[in-house]
């Protein structure tokens, strides 16, 4: 594998990173809404978001990408592959992050909310100043774990024809007929992104464990 091929892989890597970042940021914003709706105390809202989460947790990510990519085209919404996989991954991330954060919000002791209420803090301040800062801490290891899943999940975008790292590998492999080398390098590139995150997540987990003692 020559320099040119490697640079092509790096160009694919760039899109993998871009897709991961967009899906994680948009998914975080939507996921926060999902988590807040899921803990709103309003029965119908909680049931609806529970359904939303169940659908995305209960179906393969690949299916979700297909539905967004082909399904939206069917009802007349034209999107290029980049937009379609971004939307698909964002929806996927919002459901998973929403569920992780719901758990974290509920893990903040009830007394915190009660103390905030007794001080006549309104819902927004109770969440923003009291509950969420604690919930985010609790959720960090699981959130990072999901981010790693998400980065690897972007490889499925290759199937709808978006040239990220995996598809770039596929293309090169078909050109130079060295699949083992090429996918070895592709795998190493994923590993270099994900492994430090995993280690960082484990580090945070240990840190919070000792801090809570």
């Amino acid at each position: 594998m020559g320099r040119e091929e490697f640079l092509f892989l790096l160009a694919g890597l760039k899109w993998t990173v871009a897709l991961s970042v967009v899906a994680f940021i948009c998914g975080s914003i939507a996921g926060l809404m999902v988590a807040l709706a899921r803990t709103s105390g309003i029965f119908i809202v909680e049931r609806l978001t529970a359904g939303y989460i169940a659908v995305f947790q209960g179906t393969p990510l690949l299916m979700q990408l297909f539905v967004v990519y082909y399904g939206l085209a069917l009802i007349g919404i034209q999107m290029d592959a980049w937009a379609a996989v971004s939307v698909g991954l964002t929806l996927h991330a919002s459901a998973f992050l929403g569920e992780i954060w719901r758990g974290s919000i509920e893990a903040v002791p009830r007394g915190q909310t009660e103390a905030a209420k007794a001080l006549s803090l309104g819902y927004v301040s109770r969440m923003k100043d009291v509950v969420l800062p604690q919930a985010i801490r609790i959720s960090l290891p699981a959130t990072i774990g999901f981010l790693v899943q998400l980065i690897k999940g972007t490889s499925l975008a290759s199937i709808v024809g978006f040239t990220e790292l995996t598809r770039a590998g596929n293309i090169i492999s078909n050109q130079i007929f060295q699949p083992l080398t090429v996918f070895g390098v592709v795998g190493a590139l994923y590993f270099l992104m994900c492994c430090p995150l995993t280690i960082y997540g484990a580090h945070l987990e240990r840190k919070f464990l000792t801090a809570s003692r």
Binding site: P109, A115, A116, A118, L119, S120, V130
Partner: peptide
């Protein structure tokens, strides 16, 4: 709630 303060058994200070 603005008029009455409350003190709890478990203190419930905001730890962060």
């Amino acid at each position: 709630r603005r008029e009455v303060g409350m003190v709890f058994q478990q203190f419930n200070l905001f730890p962060h």
